[in-house]
Design a protein around this nucleic acid. Structure first.
Length: 421
DNA sequence: TCTGGGGTCCTAGGACCC
DNA sequence: TCTGGGGTCCTAGGACCC
């Protein structure tokens, strides 16, 4: 049996974990730049705040209804996530961390009463982190996701745990489940399925294989089989290296000057390269893109991207920045009000294939190592490169940021020592 | 004024190879 | 009348996830 453990309203629950006064109150967490709502407490959902609601449109509503608003605090959520995951590893050696707030556990090898075990998991996580979770258990991964939905929808009745352990229960649950809420069915597939009268997950499991393969590719077919109880999706318990690493942002205002846009793009390339070195990879491709403000149709719309092939496989910020800027020059158009830009590193590999003719200056590796060590020790982006503007510090709008509750003790001690010195 | 960010996988078509 | 077959790699676009 597979269990999927999913934290309820994860970002909101993290904020609440340190603010017991917010229990039973409507709480939301906003995206970067305080743009839109990305996490809602049950109370916030109840008063009709939709996912993705633009914050500026809801400002008054939040005030009127006493909604507590937080800017996103990813270091807090990352830290809370690690705590939850480390508790889960105590319960089964076979675990797949699926996202920041979800993990699959394989329970087959354990000789336990599954229902009792699930409740113990739930209570333990709550005891140590204050984070409520829902648990779905079933013979396949897709079915465990369906079970999880039920556990979430019927909190009171299920106590947050739902198990599909008989054929009768599988069918009954799938008949109840709207097809669009199935894991792997998004807007596009939902539309196609509606057109041919498929409304429930159960109807999907009755559809012929060739139709599904034709319209939903092999992914859809695997999903169907998994829902039928045939195990086609297996546990991915090795942490895989990223195949692409991206840094993309919307700007608080729009930029029209090349120098402004360039400074942003260089900083994005810089962060990408840093993330890539953390994973121990190098790359040979970089993609840079620019976008105007799609919400302001009065202004000229423009979107462009350029893939640049690096002269050799590298993890050097200097080389990557230089090539990304060349790409930027090709797509930058005067007179556009740019709202968003990004850099994506691709072609990631752990093997640095040497080029026959051009190779990296060996000094770069040592320089990167020193740069990473300094930034690690003294704070992010303390060491910049010259094409970033040293005077300028672009701040995200974060008007509702919570404190760094989980800052590590070692860091606090270090800061204290520094101040004493 | 103001609307997120970071990933994965699959398919189709074109260019190219022998 | 009539023009092969089996590959690889790359790109763009679509679909999905959280």
């Amino acid at each position: 049996m597979y269990a999927i453990i999913d934290c309820n309203s994860f970002y909101v629950s993290c904020e609440r974990s340190f603010r017991p006064d917010l229990r039973n109150k409507p709480v939301v967490v906003l995206s970067n730049n305080d743009g839109c709502v990305i996490s809602r407490s049950a109370e916030a959902k109840e008063i009709g705040i939709p996912m993705g609601a633009p914050a500026f449109k809801y400002k008054q509503f939040f005030k009127d209804k006493g909604v507590k608003v937080f800017s996103s605090n990813y270091s807090l959520y990352g830290d809370m996530s690690s705590r939850v995951m480390s508790i889960l590893t105590e319960f089964s050696p076979e675990i797949e961390i699926y996202s920041i707030d979800e993990a699959f556990l394989y329970l087959e090898a354990l000789n336990v009463d599954i229902e009792t075990y699930a409740h113990t998991i739930k209570q333990t996580i709550f005891k140590y982190t204050n984070i409520p979770v829902s648990i779905g258990i079933a013979p396949t991964k897709a079915l465990s996701k369906v079970a999880n939905n039920v556990a979430k929808k019927f909190q009171k009745k299920t106590q947050g745990v739902f198990i599909i352990d008989t054929e009768e229960r599988r069918i009954k649950t799938l008949q109840w489940t709207p097809v669009e809420s199935v894991w792997g069915i998004g807007r596009g597939h939902f539309k196609k399925l509606s057109e041919i009268g498929i409304k429930t997950a159960y109807q999907l499991t009755l559809k012929e294989d060739h139709w599904i393969k034709r319209h939903m590719s092999v992914i859809g077919l695997r999903l169907k089989k998994d829902l039928c109880g045939e195990e086609t999706l297996t546990l991915d318990d090795v942490v895989k290296d990223r195949k692409a690493i991206a840094t993309t942002r919307s700007f608080e205002y729009t930029f029209s000057q090349y120098e402004d846009v360039k400074e942003r793009v260089v900083t994005f390339a810089y962060s990408c390269a840093e993330k890539m070195r953390k994973q121990g990879s190098s790359c040979n491709l970089a993609y840079v893109f620019l976008r105007s403000n799609r919400h302001d149709q009065k202004k000229e719309q423009y979107r462009a991207g350029k893939m640049v092939v690096l002269p050799y496989t590298t993890d050097s910020t200097l080389v990557i920045v230089e090539e990304v800027v060349k790409g930027l020059k090709e797509i930058f158009k005067e007179g556009i009000h740019y709202k968003r830009a990004g850099v994506v590193l691709m072609g990631l590999t752990k093997v640095k294939q040497m080029d026959l003719f051009v190779n990296e200056d060996p000094k770069h590796a040592a320089l990167m190592k020193a740069m990473d060590a300094l930034n690690d020790k003294y704070g992010a982006h303390k060491i910049k490169i010259a094409s970033q503007d040293l005077k300028r510090t672009w701040k995200m709008r974060q008007e509702h940021l919570s404190p760094q509750y989980t800052t590590k003790f070692s860091e606090i001690i270090e800061i204290n020592c520094r101040e004493k010195k």
